[in-house]
């Protein structure tokens, strides 16, 4: 029998920074990630876990293909990429919320087909579908706030933690959509193949999340 190594795909950047203290608290060795330099794969001889660092959307791809057993990634990305894997734990970090925002003169009830700028076309479509509205969506990769300011779009759907960026850019929040937080996701087949190791990790983390 081959040794059961569990591959954990961790979203690099903000999620990584927020989750490392939790992993530490749960007694998982992440020394190597802290001193990572430019490496992307981190193995520890002390435990059955091996970490890889990837961008959020790629974490879902690794998981869907079974190239990683566990993913740690924001629920915004899971929803947008229609993840079909098991979502076992809300890690309650990276908490923020989707909002509909625009300039102060925006009228959400104006009877016409609106143009919405967003990094999240699927979530935007779902939201406007629920309102019974058809909108034109423009996919934007970053600095979404620019869209209404430059006249590219009528409004934006984006995530915000405190609303500061939105306010500082003279935008106003018109509606609150789904809440977002970092989740622990497990590949369906991996959960069957390595249930003991995976649940050990989940239970350890759950213990430190709820405290």
């Amino acid at each position: 029998m081959t040794e059961n190594r569990i591959k954990i795909a961790l979203t690099k950047g903000r999620v990584e920074k927020q989750i490392l203290p939790l992993l530490d608290k749960a007694g998982i060795d992440c020394e190597q990630i802290k001193q990572k330099k430019r490496r992307l794969i981190f193995d520890s001889p002390k435990q059955p876990y091996e970490f890889i660092l990837a961008k959020g959307p790629d974490v879902t791809t690794f998981l869907e293909r079974g190239a990683a057993d566990i993913g740690i990634v924001g629920s915004d990305i899971l929803t947008e990429h229609r993840s079909t894997q098991y979502e076992l734990l809300d890690l309650k970090t990276g908490q923020c919320q989707f909002v509909l925002a625009s300039t102060k003169d925006f009228d959400p009830d104006e009877p016409r087909r609106k143009i919405i700028g967003t990094k999240y076309p699927n979530i935007t479509k779902k939201y406007f579908d629920s309102l019974g509205q058809d909108v034109e969506i423009i996919k934007i990769e970053g600095s979404v706030e620019l869209a209404p300011l430059t006249g590219l779009a009528d409004a934006i759907v984006d995530i915000t933690e405190t609303g500061t960026t939105i306010r500082e850019n003279n935008l106003k929040i018109y509606d609150y959509l789904d809440k977002v937080s970092t989740r622990l996701v497990v590949n369906r087949m991996s959960l069957k193949q390595h249930s003991k190791e995976i649940y050990t990790l989940v239970d350890k983390l759950e213990g430190v999340v709820t405290k």
């Binding site: 079909t84 098991y86 979502e87 076992l88 734990l89 809300d90 989740r183 497990v186 959960l191």
Partner: peptide, 12 residues
């Protein structure tokens, strides 16, 4: 409930 159970969407 069945949907959340089958998808193992535990928070939900």
């Amino acid at each position: 409930i069945a949907q959340a159970l089958y998808d193992k969407n535990i928070p939900e």
